[in-house]
């Protein structure tokens, strides 16, 4: 397979010591194995996420993403922007489309960018890493790379919201996207096609500001995984991962449950299945240990 180069937008939570630094490490491992070279966008900034609207306003928010696209066009010309964070991908793609459709907004964003001598051409595709895996690499090529199939593991595919709506992965339905189930099967594990909380919202940023309301939704996401006999929950989204994993103590205290369900990224599943060790697969970044994956990685 020829080496694929992409202009990579990791996002704030992927930085060293941040909440999805484990995702970053597993992404790097997965891409090494698949011969994908991640060329980070130099000096990328925060996208504003899904909460920046309150104070940010439309043009300032779109301009944040316009700066990242402009930097990518300048430093990584001809390379598609690829993000692993759902909010980064959504914000950047939304900015690209809005600035494409609205000529005045495009002009205004460029006026702001001109303050720092940047220029947006807005000709660069903005994609999610999952699109690269599904459309460019393909499930068959992934299967061909498997050294340690995750045999016997039952994994609930929790896609969440923003990797799925409003853009989604091509050819997938909003109500029941199946790419994550296919990825789970490609690494030799069993998916749960009837997992009914697959696209349920975890509360997103409101897990901070409205913890009671969000934890009620998260409780349902985990409970349904237990009901289906899942060993693990897998997700593509950093905020889904954190929200569903890290509050399980608080949820147990609130609802009298006894949850202890590991929540991992697809990139961690793939890293282990590709034969990499626990550390390369960032399994040491779990708060709820994924013992079943550690056992396979340690074999």
């Amino acid at each position: 397979m020829a080496k694929k180069e992409v202009s990579y937008y990791p996002g704030c939570s992927s930085q060293t010591g941040a909440s999805s630094s484990n995702m970053m490490r597993a992404t790097q491992t997965m891409c090494d194995e698949l011969d994908i070279q991640l060329n980070e966008i130099p000096d990328w900034n925060c996208c504003g996420a899904s909460i920046g609207y309150g104070s940010g306003g439309e043009l300032p928010r779109l301009t944040l993403s316009a700066r990242n696209i402009a930097l990518s066009e300048q430093h990584n010309p001809g390379q598609e922007i690829v993000a692993t964070c759902a909010a980064c991908w959504l914000s950047t793609r939304e900015a690209k489309e809005r600035l494409h459709e609205d000529a005045n907004m495009f002009r205004d964003a460029n006026t702001a960018l001109n303050e720092i001598n940047l220029k947006l051409n807005n000709q660069t595709p903005v994609r999610h890493m999952v699109e690269v895996l599904v459309e460019d690499i393909g499930f068959e090529a992934i299967k061909a790379k498997i050294k340690k199939p995750l045999q016997g593991l039952k994994i609930a595919s929790y896609v969440g919201c923003q990797t799925n709506r409003p853009f989604g992965i091509a050819e997938e339905s909003f109500e029941n996207p199946v790419y994550l189930d296919h990825l789970i099967e490609s690494v030799g594990a069993d998916s749960i096609p009837t997992y009914e909380k697959k696209v349920q919202c975890c509360g997103g940023a409101l897990a901070f500001s409205e913890p009671e309301k969000s934890q009620e939704m998260i409780h349902g996401i985990i409970e349904a995984a237990y009901d289906h006999g899942a060993d693990l929950i897998a997700t593509p989204c950093p905020l889904c991962q954190a929200n569903v994993e890290i509050y399980q103590d608080q949820i147990n205290a609130r609802f009298g449950s006894k949850f202890n369900m590991p929540v991992v990224y697809y990139s961690q599943l793939m890293s282990v299945a590709f034969g990499r060790n626990s550390k390369d697969s960032a399994l040491d970044g779990q708060i709820i240990r994924a013992k079943s994956l550690e056992d396979i990685a340690g074999k």
Partner: peptide, 21 residues
């Protein structure tokens, strides 16, 4: 609470260009 959080978030990202979690 979310109106307050959105302001805190914006101020946070504006200081360094990236969110300090």
């Amino acid at each position: 609470p979310t109106a307050q959080f959105s302001q805190i978030f914006w101020d946070n990202l504006m200081k360094k260009g990236r969110v300090n979690e």
